[in-house]
Amino acid sequence: MQHLYERIDRDPRFHALARRRSLLGWGLSAAVLVAYYAFILAIAFAPGLLAMPLGPDTVLTVGIIAGLAVIVMSVALTGVYVWRANRTFDGLNAAIVGDATRDA
């Protein structure tokens, strides 16, 4: 198995795939963490901001909508990741592994 790992490690397509995957993974993680910690830090340091009503004739506040929006956004971003990964990454991965094992 080890020589296969080394062979794949020398394949530039493998590193290109790993880079694309980690770019997507880290990018989306950053988006979720920024949104989440913005919400948490707002509760910690600016609760007044979240207490503001959304409009003159509604009881809903900015905070309620922000919290629900973070939930909806998290679900949507997992969808984006799975969609992208299923469409492109799996095919590329299969090709890289296939070439490495066939030549072996």
Partner: peptide
Amino acid sequence: GFDGLIYAVGGLCGWPLVLFLLAE
């Protein structure tokens, strides 16, 4: 009231991170 939402949002936001960084 509102503060219960922290548990809901925090519990959920762990999941995308599990997917993006750990699951596969």
